[in-house]
Design a protein around this nucleic acid. Structure first.
Lengths: 340, 340
DNA sequence: ACTGGCACTCCGCAGGGCAGAGTGCCAGCC
DNA sequence: GGCTGGCACTCTGCCCTGCGGAGTGCCAGT
């Protein structure tokens, strides 16, 4: 009906105004700033209903209204239009990310870019090892009993481990092992790779068998174990931007959560590249993030999700803008990684 | 003389009390907490002199005294005794750092450990490339015109670059190049390595000459250029710990400076492992760090400085304790890197 | 040279009054 | 039935004031 429709417009206007002004918004200001075609008194009635239904609330009697988490959720799901990035922004993205020399550089630039575009805290996950494929395996002879195993993935990630070998290893054995491992693993997804290790041990020439087992075990342990996922964080200075009211109490728990990478990883790690995921305030499982919102998306080449990235900020954030920025950056990162 | 001596004790007591209580300290409280053997009135006279000389100041008439930067400086240089770490702390360090699997892990653990021990923001620099030696150079054939160059240093740092080759490169050429580069570079300091490239091009077999030049140029560019130094930061949540008065205004500029790694790198990058370096308040060249103190030291094996690490906090910090912690962690990191 | 006493200054905090913003409700109007 | 203008009410934020407390500086005394 017409009523419902207008009520939603009122909700949208409240969210928009509150996000941009950071002041609880009153009926009078709403009527002035938006062409709703009705008087403040009418708006007040709508507001009363919206409050009744839990979409908005007032910090105290006779202050304006502020959206609740539920209000933001509705706004994100139903009221916000996709906000295309400006040409300048698109150009900034290209300019910023071009000229990256390696993976570390790509992710570092991305996180800075994202923080700058959204004026929020940005987080970028390293490409998940288990979903990457092996580009090359290298063995370096460190000493009679020590071997350095270096793994290079097709996303440009490099991991290394020192392996202590029970028996002495000669240079020829290392060379043989290198060929063996490379022919077995190159091109394989790391998740699959782990399951082929037993076969490999089985079929290895007898004199290499022990070595293959040792190195194979290290590889599996390194690569498949969770906790191998890294996170780059940037723009934490933005936490101190808004009013002190943006976060209940202090930014402390948030900073702690960002350092406890696991918490954030769980959030942004499970996203696919096609849809932007938004988690608002109380929806966040972890206590430290109550009071904050997370906008995240997966990045990858094609439909293959390699990792996630996103921003963390106050629930009072520009969802439309941040969603657009996050998606755009993810797309570019995906492209860059596919190329390299 | 006896007077001067007591005056310095008063200064020391003021610094200690202020650091631990975070309240301007008055003559009465001083007399009560420390056995100075004189009455508050006498202490007041000493304080007047100390203030005259610029070591302490009062926030406003009739508040207690607070050390100035000059006061802290004097305290650090002349008044603070070396504070040995507790057994528990030593054990914590060992336990924390053992079990690190690679360089990234070592530095990540170090920064967390340091932040935890000092309750300040901790920063750890990656081993400087130019001071590291080459452990291994690896070439991976990405395509007819593309080569991935992977450099592994003796400190466990891995760098990689994609090189675009003007002419098509065959697998045999890659193998030859690999042998050539490794025999030329392995064991060499990176700073020296760059100067040997021209010779290497000169003496290369003709069919490889162009390739050696291209790859060599990339190597030099990658490794000797400044800006290749990375920084790990941790414990930023500690910035919100103390009173709001710890930092003039907000924590904002500090967080920004920490993300602008260059600023901090310049500070902690030029330290040798034997002496702990302290920079207090206004002594810091960069504006954002005015109002903060930095305690830093180099780490390395033997007398070779590989990089720096340290903590950043309010001028009102436990200098003795932080200096001890920073030094201890640096020592362990140096050991670990020497082993691996 | 140190000490006790004393007057003085200034901060921090609580209480009271006041303007402003915003609401809810009601009676009237289309 | 829904919208509107008007009105009384409530609550915050701010300023001002007054007051206790902490700490100082100075002076005279030992």
């Amino acid at each position: 009906m017409a009523h419902d429709d207008r009520r939603l417009q009122v909700l949208r206007a409240i969210v928009q105004d509150y996000v941009s002004t950071n002041d609880p918004v009153g009926s009078k200001a709403l009527a002035a700033r938006h062409d709703l075609g009705v008087s403040p008194a009418t708006i007040r009635n709508d507001m009363a209903v919206l409050e009744e239904e839990g979409y908005i609330t007032q910090p105290h009697t006779s202050a304006g209204r502020v959206p609740t988490d539920k209000g933001y959720r509705f706004f994100v799901d139903r009221l916000s239009a996709v906000k295309p990035l400006s040409v300048a922004e698109r150009r900034a993205i290209e300019k910023f990310l071009d000229g990256a020399v390696d993976l570390h550089d790509v992710l570092g630039r991305s996180v800075r870019l994202l923080a700058q575009l959204t004026r929020q805290v940005a987080v970028v996950q390293y490409p998940t090892l288990s979903r990457s494929a092996v580009r090359h395996l290298e063995l370096v002879h460190l000493g009679p009993h020590r071997l350095l195993v270096v793994l290079i993935t097709d996303t440009g990630r490099v991991e290394q481990r020192v392996v202590e070998c029970p028996a002495e290893v000669g240079a020829e054995a290392v060379a043989e092992l290198r060929t063996l491992l490379n022919s077995a693993f190159v091109g394989a997804k790391l998740a699959e790779a782990s399951s082929t290790v037993p076969d490999l041990v089985e079929n290895a020439p007898p004199h290499l068998r022990a070595l293959v087992a040792t190195v194979g075990a290290t590889l599996v342990e390194t690569l498949v174990e969770p906790g191998e996922d890294r996170l780059v964080v940037g723009g934490t200075a933005n936490l101190t931007r808004g009013s002190a009211l943006d976060f209940p109490g202090t930014v402390r728990p948030l900073l702690e959560a960002l350092e406890e990478q696991v918490i954030v990883l769980r959030l942004i790690g499970e996203v696919d590249p096609s849809t932007v995921f938004v988690s608002i305030g109380e929806e966040n499982a972890h206590e430290a993030l109550t009071g904050a919102s997370v906008v995240s998306v997966g990045y990858g080449s094609g439909d293959r999700a390699l990792g996630g990235l996103g921003v963390v900020g106050p629930t009072r954030m520009d969802y439309a803008g941040n969603m657009a920025a996050v998606r755009a950056v993810a797309r570019y990162v995906g492209q860059l990684l596919a190329e390299s």
